[in-house]
Design a binder for these strands. Structure first.
Lengths: 199, 199
DNA sequence: CCACCGATTGACTGGTCAATCAACCGGAGG
DNA sequence: CCTCCGGTTGATTGACCAGTCAATCGGTGG
């Protein structure tokens, strides 16, 4: 919980917000719910953040920048597109495994809510698509992937599949067990890459 | 405006709602916006519907039942999984081509909003996944698809890719031209099916 | 011509919350 | 011991809106 010296209230509020957002959804979360969950006065939320929206923004930006970094790192690493895409999917699935609440909030309230909140972050989100597209493009350049699929198209299909699986776990449409995550990553990458390879 | 005989106000309201929901999103649409758009008094909306929610429900159910029917029909038709999945993706893409506003509303406000509204319709939505999974399963049975991918898993990946492409068009992440839709369908089916076929 | 009835109208109510703000507290520094 | 100041408190305000309901309209049949 709170560390010895500062008891960083800002962090306390952010972490509490994740829990409440995950439980009730952003829209039906009252600012007072966040304050209560954090064990903090209502007004303090407004001391650290300008609005309820900004709390969500902060959570999203924090994590999404990690994803963008992970995509770039995967791209820089050795190996073919199969390995690179495996790293990307692995990072996303691991994020969920490590902090399901946070990923649920990000996926459900931002990424998939592209009309309301997502609109604001479309640029950031698009950057992830483009990073994945770049991996595909390089794979095509090296002949590892066939060239008749637009990289952005392949990227969207790949990311869409990843997110849909995540959503399936989040909402219990498909069962999730510890081992499923790695298996899912391999299976997904295999399927998509086999489909993208030259015949 | 009003047609000669009945001027079906209920329909008028539903169609107006589609336009307004597509423009502003469900959440920031006031019931008065719908009434204004339909050229009808505020109270009349409540004469035909119990709540703002029910308006959206109605729109979703109307169209989703068509999708479910289309999936079943595709499954009953002759041909391998490739043809069947092509029909499913084709139906969805055509739905968007034919009535982008309605599809935008359904995807953005229901299907992808799995926390709020989607929760109510999870059962219906799941039925679509299962229909697609059945097609995959049969393809595995006949040896047309490899058997080491769980049908539900493949179904989610397939549907996720479809929905992501749709979202890309809806939000302008990827450009959409008339010819793109059919091309996208073929490309997507090719990619996914190649990935699902025995090697 | 009237009585009736469902469709239609829109002003109003009740309740909900995001955001504000004035007051409070406790420690650092003088 | 006092002052100052930033972190902290929570009651209050003001806006917003879904849903209600009593009144009106217009068509139909007797």
């Amino acid at each position: 919980m709170a560390q010895a010296p500062p008891a960083d209230k800002r962090r306390l509020i952010l972490d509490a917000a994740v829990r409440v957002f995950a439980r009730q959804g952003f829209h039906s979360t009252r600012v007072s719910d966040i304050a209560d969950e954090a064990g903090v006065a209502y007004g303090l939320v407004y001391h650290y953040f300008n609005s309820k929206d900004q709390v969500l923004n902060e959570l999203f930006t924090e994590r999404w920048s990690l994803l963008l970094a992970a995509i770039e790192e995967a791209d820089r690493a050795d190996g073919g597109p199969r390995e690179k895409l495996g790293k990307v999917a692995g990072f996303i699935f691991d994020s969920y495994r490590h902090d399901p609440d946070l990923m649920k909030v990000i996926i459900v309230e931002v990424t998939r809510a592209a009309n309301s909140f997502g609109q604001t972050h479309l640029e950031q989100i698009r950057r992830a698509y483009e990073g994945i597209a770049r991996i595909v493009e390089e794979g095509q350049g090296s002949g590892a992937l066939r060239g008749d699929v637009a990289p952005m198209f392949a990227s969207m299909a790949f990311y869409g599949a990843v997110e849909q699986l995540l959503s399936g776990w989040i909402f219990g449409t498909i069962p999730a067990s510890k081992t499923d995550f790695d298996q899912a990553r391999d299976l997904l990458v295999t399927t998509i890459c086999d489909g993208l390879e030259p015949r």
